[in-house]
């Protein structure tokens, strides 16, 4: 084979390598989120995970000092409503992640005076469907699918039971009230 032919094949190999590298790089977050979705259980339902320990395998690098509640969402059939009681004696936050792992929303206990959370997640392009009120926050997800994650800090080992009771009051599900 001539030197020119070799150069052509090497260039073709490098082009394939670049395409595969770029494709796998962009696909990784989606694949990892997909796996997380499948491990986290049913959509549009709040799942209250056990405190992380050495046996935890749902999410990499979990914090053993936080309690995680998760709601994988799918807005195909309409908006999602997240309700929770906000503890003001410890760190608490509700965050939302899109299908590409971006953290597109976060609210912590010090950013609201409300003792309760009423958060409606709308589908992209449907941001006129639900109006915010004095008691209801309304946000628009950048993607149809995503994940709500509530973190509650165990700031006192003696109060774990009370902290766990409060965070288990959090729910998520299809918005059913009149809009």
């Amino acid at each position: 084979m001539s030197a020119r032919a070799w150069t052509g094949w090497i260039a073709a190999t490098l082009v394939v390598a670049a395409l595969v590298h770029a494709g796998s790089l962009f696909a990784l977050p989606w694949l990892v989120m997909d796996r997380a979705f499948s491990l986290m259980g049913s959509r549009n339902t709040m799942h209250h995970g056990a405190r992380a320990d050495a046996n935890s395998r749902t999410i990499v690098r979990p914090s053993p000092d936080l309690l995680y509640s998760t709601c994988p969402y799918d807005l195909t059939k309409g908006p999602l409503e997240v309700r929770a009681v906000i503890p003001h004696e410890t760190y608490w936050s509700v965050s939302a992640f899109d299908n590409d792992t971006n953290n597109w929303y976060v609210l912590n206990d010090r950013q609201t005076e409300r003792g309760k959370l009423d958060l409606v997640i709308q589908a992209p392009g449907r941001d006129k469907d639900v109006a915010a009120t004095e008691h209801r926050l309304v946000v628009t997800s950048p993607t149809i699918r995503g994940l709500i994650l509530i973190r509650t800090l165990i700031n006192d080992e003696d109060r774990i039971a009370a902290i766990d009771r409060t965070r288990r009051l959090a729910t998520c599900g299809p918005l059913t009230e009149p809009q």
Partner: peptide, 9 residues
């Protein structure tokens, strides 16, 4: 090419 691309990732 595929092997090289996956190795790079």
């Amino acid at each position: 090419g595929i092997a090289l691309g996956l190795f790079a990732t």
